[in-house]
Nucleic acid binder design. Structure first.
Lengths: 225, 225
DNA sequence: ATTATCTATAGATCTATAGATAATGC
DNA sequence: ATTATCTATAGATCTATAGATAATGC
């Protein structure tokens, strides 16, 4: 059924309304999944909100799991668009400016396309045995982002902090972003950019303190890679 | 059906196995809800895992919503047990020690009974229109904890920070706790206590910076109460 | 000929209840 | 008499598919 994976795509051009319908289905699924999570997203609901029958959904997507994974994938691409400029190598003058720029872009991306992180965190907190492809996709994407942050902190504190300490800084930064995102979801009047900026101040203060106290201050805090 | 709300409880003593069954149902529901969220928790699943028929579940709880709310309520009580000592007024010598003690207890409580925050965050991220009683309960409990933190920070920085600044500190602290909890859920080798302690260092650094720069430094960051 | 949508429905699962039966309290 | 469990099932909803039909590409 599913021809979205592009395996043996025919040379022939598809009908123009097909892609539009696919997007309408993804829009509806993203809305509902963002409201109600994985199990709360029913095919009937997506069908109703998109205006297309259930069988059309199954024509475009293999099954419900693939549909949710596609929602994550698309929202991640939009998210990446928002973060472009930071991820491209060396558009900022100094490592510190690079981090600050990353922060501003993160705040903007979180506000522009919150579906990605909201649904992603919901999937991450769930630990269902089967049907994990959407969750796996989110975790892979998240790991990649973490590696970027690691590289950024490494450049900023080269020679002053060891790998374990840099990893802790990146963990704290990502935790602050996740936590502040949740706070803002629960209170939309919260100024996300200002809070992220304060959090960055705190992370840098932790970094200075770690740098002064030398490498390997306490028992291991994370698994070696 | 539901006699759990204790409205017109008869003078007569209930059978001893009743309460035990109720707890087994709650155990099973907590496990499944922690794995799969609200919609993923089916009565059939709870019935199978608890060993009691569905009708027994409905004898003990009004409906599924009440069951999930009871799960939240019980895990919150256990959580509170872990936090007792911090919440009771003035067991610590200084405000700073009070905060540090709260931090240690938070780490311990998060590790001992993670169900409360895991399920709570899942519910918080969802925004379903109906069936909100479990979610409301979690948010109320969360708000109370936030107020305690606010009082604690107020005492610690009395006269040096205004209400808005104290609120930002509490928001950052709670965000760090939420975010680090998620990080630890995704990587159970993560040393939660050490990371929380580092986060606290960062929050205090932010506080010092705010105190030095005087009150009302930038545009409002939160809604007035 | 291929792409996409439509109607209709099979079969599984889910929430909730009816009504009989067992166990305990007074 | 009340508390609690048991069997059985109604009725709704959910995932997924079958098969007819429409629209477009070549």
């Amino acid at each position: 059924m599913d021809r979205s994976s592009g395996k043996r795509r025919k040379a022939r051009k598809p009908r123009p309304d097909g892609e539009e319908s696919r997007q309408r289905i993804l829009d509806a699924a993203a809305e509902i999944a963002g409201e109600r999570g994985y199990d709360g997203t029913s095919i009937a609901g997506v069908s109703e909100r998109s205006g297309l029958p259930a069988s059309s959904i199954y024509w475009h997507f293999e099954d419900k799991d693939a549909l949710i994974a596609a929602v994550i994938e698309r929202s991640f691409e939009r998210w990446l668009d928002g973060m472009r400029g930071w991820l491209e190598p060396h558009t900022a003058a100094s490592p510190l400016e690079h981090l600050e720029q990353g922060l501003r872009l993160t705040a903007k991306a979180l506000l522009d396309s919150p579906d990605f992180l909201r649904l992603g965190l919901m999937l991450a907190l769930e630990r269902r045995p089967e049907e994990a492809s959407a969750r796996k996709l989110f975790l892979a994407v998240r790991a990649r982002t973490f590696e970027r942050m690691l590289a950024s902190f490494s450049a900023l504190f080269a020679g002053r902090l060891d790998g374990r300490q840099v990893r802790m800084l990146a963990t704290l930064t990502m935790a602050a972003a996740d936590g502040l995102f949740i706070a803002r979801e629960l209170d939309e009047s919260l100024d996300l950019a200002a809070h992220l900026e304060s959090a960055a101040t705190g992370v840098l203060a932790v970094a200075e303190r770690l740098a002064r106290s030398g490498p390997s201050t306490r028992s291991r805090t994370g698994r070696a890679e």
